[in-house]
Amino acid sequence: MLEENNYGAWAVKMKIFMGAQGVWAAVESKNAVDDRLDQMALAAIVQAVPESVMMATSEHKTAKKVWAAIKEMHVGEERVVKARVQMLRRELDGMYMSESGKFSEFALKVSDVVNEIRTLGTKVEESTVVEKLLRSVPEKFQPIVTTIEQWGDVETMSVAEVIGRLRAFEESGKGWCHHKEEEEKGKLLMVRDEPRLTRAEWEAIVAEEKRSGHNSGSGGNKSGEKKYHCRFDKSKIDCRRCGEYGHFTDECDGVKKMTKGVAQLAVVDDEPTLL
Rank of each mutant, 00 (worst) to 15 (best):
S212K: 09
N221A: 03
R240G: 06
G217F: 14
R241V: 06
G213A: 15
Y245I: 01
S218D: 02
R211Y: 00
E244D: 04
G224M: 03
H229Y: 12
Y228A: 07
E209R: 03
S218A: 14
E209S: 09
C242A: 13
C242W: 15
G217P: 05
R211V: 06
S216C: 03
G217W: 15
S223Y: 13
G220R: 01
K227M: 11
H247M: 05
K227E: 05
K210Q: 08
C242Q: 05
E225W: 01
R231F: 03
D233W: 10
S235A: 08
H247E: 05
N221P: 00
G217H: 11
K227Q: 11
N221K: 05
C239W: 05
S235N: 14
C230D: 11
G224C: 03
E209Q: 12
Y228T: 09
K226N: 14
K222L: 06
S216V: 01
H214E: 03
G213V: 08
G246M: 06
E208N: 06
R231P: 02
K236F: 08
G224Q: 04
K222A: 07
F232W: 14
A207L: 15
K226M: 11
K227A: 05
K236D: 03
D238H: 12
G217S: 09
K226S: 08
C230A: 12
S212Y: 02
K226V: 06
S223G: 11
S235M: 08
Y245H: 08
C230T: 13
Y228V: 10
S223F: 12
K226G: 08
H214K: 15
R240D: 00
H214I: 06
F248H: 14
G243Q: 10
E209M: 08
G213W: 02
F248K: 01
E225R: 03
R241G: 04
G246L: 04
S223Q: 13
I237M: 01
